[in-house]
Design a protein around this nucleic acid. Sequence first.
DNA 1: CTAGGAACTTAGTCTCGACTAAACTTTGAT
DNA 2: ATCAAAGTTTAGTCGAGACTAAGTTCCTAG
Lengths: 216, 216
Amino acid sequence: METSGSVQDYLKAIYSLGEGATTSAIANRLNVSSASVTAMFKRLATRGYLRHRKYQGVELTDSGNQLALEIIRHHRLIEMYLHKTLGIPWDEVHDEAEVLEHVLSERLEDRIADLLGHPTHDPHGDPIPPKNGAHKEVAHLTLGQFPAGPARVERVSDRDPEALRYMGELGLKPGTAITIEKQAPFGGPVWVKIRGQRHAVGRELADSIWVGPRNK
Amino acid sequence: METSGSVQDYLKAIYSLGEGATTSAIANRLNVSSASVTAMFKRLATRGYLRHRKYQGVELTDSGNQLALEIIRHHRLIEMYLHKTLGIPWDEVHDEAEVLEHVLSERLEDRIADLLGHPTHDPHGDPIPPKNGAHKEVAHLTLGQFPAGPARVERVSDRDPEALRYMGELGLKPGTAITIEKQAPFGGPVWVKIRGQRHAVGRELADSIWVGPRNK
DNA sequence: CTAGGAACTTAGTCTCGACTAAACTTTGAT
DNA sequence: ATCAAAGTTTAGTCGAGACTAAGTTCCTAG
């Protein structure tokens, strides 16, 4: 019942695309051809990790779901570990975790979780699934969707190191209190006050930052 | 020029077997069939990592040698890191390192080496090859070969966790000063005084412990 | 100096995970 | 309601790395 890194990558992608886990979405995410995805869907279905309705996309079974969560837990624990303990900058940890997640032993996973005090979120604000537990991701509004007023950064996308570095400069990190001053219309920027400084955040960036209400 | 984990395992095995890198020795070490080894020899030869003289075994080229040393450096650095920083017992680090060695990035390698203060030896006393540097392993006598008198443990085999655990109990760790009292003949044990205690060390164990003269 | 067994190589398969090209659904626009 | 484009699947290949079975070559004991 060993799962290869490939299988794990597919399960992770399917999980995170949720309802929209179609052949081409996965192909796009993983940079492989659609034909390869269909082939993998078959393999994964016979292993009982998902159900494949022809031409209609795919849905994880419980065991597929569990496996996906395990990998995501690995990924986010590793990100946290690399950042906190080895001091790897937050824009670099994703790529490292992408490969380490596939080879983390139970032993090391437990040891790392212990050392970190069983963190609930990684450096980008992504929640770390508990070991063998249920897990649901809380939905947030993006910075571009949130109404003007006080707010707090909850989570940022970890996919683009460039963007992360820029967010870091601005101080847009999970937990930071900000004030949204104005949502400029027609694709204009979001005006945000961060640490007393006003910044114009472009639409593209604003869509990869999730915010919530300020803690009362 | 990417090298797979398999390729790396072969290079490492060939390096550590040195002159004796024959088809069957490698097959035995890696638990694969001889035919698989011959096939891999061909691949590695066309990539310029070794020279294969039919029926005569194999010899690494400079670039093969360098690659092997890089993996061995990874392995031993990781062992040291896991032991020192994560507190993984010395009999468990080998197996973990065996998989992590293949995926350690330059970035992490450097960071870990820095954090550890650029160690020269791993927890078992194996020397850590320097980055892109020449490396030669010093030959030691085994505990079973060393003459009676004062001695010091230099290095122990990391292959058998059971044995390592037992050595740990006895206090047979690299750096430990011991006194060899008697080499019993005909496969008998070696009588050794460790931390004031006398122990009979069986031949098999004595052959996986290397010792040197006590530091004057 | 030769016979036979051990060691090695060749030949032929298999699985995994990728690919392209071609055929088939589904869907959306007219 | 049709029909083309978009999306999906099938068919056929490929390379890596493993295997078994069947030859070759080497070496050593007699």
